[in-house]
Design a protein around this nucleic acid. Structure first.
Length: 409
RNA sequence: GGGGAGAUUCCCGAGUGGUCAAAGGGGGCAGACUGUAAAUCUGUUGGCUGUAGCCUUCGAAGGUUCAAAUCCUUCUCUCCCCA
């Protein structure tokens, strides 16, 4: 098999391929152009979005040319695939703003040089489509019967599917056709929930252009306990450090289940395959340390080495008391307030360790709250500047959540 | 257009006048056990407040009643059947 494909397969990226042999042969002949589409429907990319982009880097490094297609047009509609509810419509301004952020975040990871890595926006050809022409040229190639047989639509038939969403597949197929015509794109990669849409695009190109294109999907990444990958208690693991701090990001990977270490190393880092396998094969405590490596590598790829080091240091401070505590999540409190004293409950809420005073109270009652290593027994306790140690209060909620309070004059 | 069913707390889903902040499950959080893992067990899970109390919540707005998630009216939305 083609070497680049081989790598993807070994690293666990391959779920389905429209024609693995054909694709392999094509890639052996020389560099190909491929694309991956993402709809800018949120304020930031999250880790789940990144799987195809890791693949993009592997392919690019093997000499192929990748296009990151931003769905500035399709985001106006919403893809029903894999969802059980209609996506709410987003304003055009919001979509454009999201698009810019997405490109920005991706550029740091992919580095679009305009030669081997480029971006495109389907808004360019979708926003002014002529309805009648579109139906004549594209719509006629789609069989409703066939579309209804797809799992993603069948599922939604139960709960309701609006006509515009139903059209999503046509638009995505049209994207592929456009990229084929404009850039000679021969391969579309994406998450496995995109399979139906990708195949539809391949068929469209075959009918309209008589050309053979390919599709390759990646497994939808879940943790081995069945949870969606990258879900934290607050939601997804975002790339934007304002939404998900590098420390949180680091901790997510630091706490991944044992059985996922190898898989995540293979997919979310560029460490050599052998090393990933070795690290993943470790047992007990040693495996626990492999998680640290995993967390550092991924954080470094997304946020840079410096942030990764800070996060690592903060984690060490929180759990082993040896790193740099100043890198932990920190809030500042007016020194005058500290002098007069603040109730523990309020402090925990302010530090973001509890969403409400009731929660904070519960935390204390269940003996999950501590300050500077001492358990809080009384929910009425008042903390003052006399409780500062090294000019800080170290708040802990449960075993894993930590926040530091420092005085501000 | 006609007929029927439904909208409950983060999710699913009970609840048909007071004993309902609302069963049960899921998820979350905390504790025990550990390795910052998994599994398991226990507790907890609207808000504010000294465990007494007060406030907000059962699609929306009105109304009946001492008292409503539960009854009435109108509205919005969803699903199903017929045309």
């Amino acid at each position: 098999m083609n070497r680049a494909l081989e790598i993807l397969k070994e690293r666990g990226f391959v779920q389905q391929c429209s024609d693995l042999e054909g694709l392999s042969n094509l890639m052996d002949e020389g560099p190909i152009t491929f694309y991956i589409g993402t709809d800018p429907t949120g304020p930031s990319l999250h880790i789940g979005h990144m799987v195809p982009f890791f693949a993009m880097r592997h392919l690019r490094d093997a000499g192929h040319r990748g296009i990151a297609l931003l769905g500035g047009g399709t985001a106006r509609i919403g893809d029903p695939s894999g969802k059980t509810e209609m996506r709410k419509l987003i304003s055009y301004e919001e979509i454009d703003a999201n698009t810019e952020r997405f490109i920005d975040q991706l550029d740091r990871f992919i580095h679009f040089d305009g030669v081997n890595a480029l971006t495109a926006n389907n808004k360019d050809w979708l926003s002014n489509l002529n309805y009648i022409e579109f139906l004549r040229d594209i719509g006629r190639h789609f069989s409703v019967n066939r579309m209804l047989s797809f799992e993603s639509y069948r599922m939604r038939l139960e709960t309701g599917l609006s006509f515009i969403e139903f059209n999503y597949q046509l638009l995505q197929s049209y994207d592929y056709l456009q990229l084929y015509k404009l850039h000679g794109c021969r391969l579309q990669i994406g998450g496995d929930d995109q399979w139906g849409n990708i195949v539809a695009g391949i068929e469209l190109i075959r009918r309209v252009e008589g050309a053979e294109c390919y599709g390759l999907t990646f497994p939808l990444v879940t943790t081995s306990d069945g949870k969606k990958m990258g879900k934290t208690e607050k939601g997804a693991l975002f790339l934007d450090p304002e939404i998900t701090s590098p420390y949180e990001f680091f901790q997510y990977f630091r706490n991944v289940p044992d059985s996922d270490v190898e898989r995540f190393l293979l997919m979310f880092t560029f460490l050599p395959i052998d090393e990933c396998r070795y690290l993943g094969s470790l047992k007990d405590k040693a495996l626990n340390e492999a998680k640290e490596r995993l967390a550092w590598e991924v954080t470094s790829l997304i946020h840079g080495e410096e942030e990764a080091n800070k996060a690592l240091s903060a984690a060490k401070a929180a759990f082993r008391g040896e790193g740099d505590a100043s890198q932990l999540p920190t809030i500042e409190v007016e020194i005058s307030r500290l002098d007069s004293g603040i109730g523990v409950l309020d402090l925990f809420v302010e530090a973001g360790l509890a969403p409400s005073k009731s929660e904070a109270r519960r935390l204390v009652k269940q003996s999950g709250a501590s300050v500077n290593g001492r358990k809080i027994e009384n929910e009425m306790q008042i903390l003052t500047s006399r409780d500062l140690e090294n000019n800080a209060l170290m708040l802990r909620a449960g075993k894993k959540r930590v926040a530091r309070v420092v005085p501000k004059s």
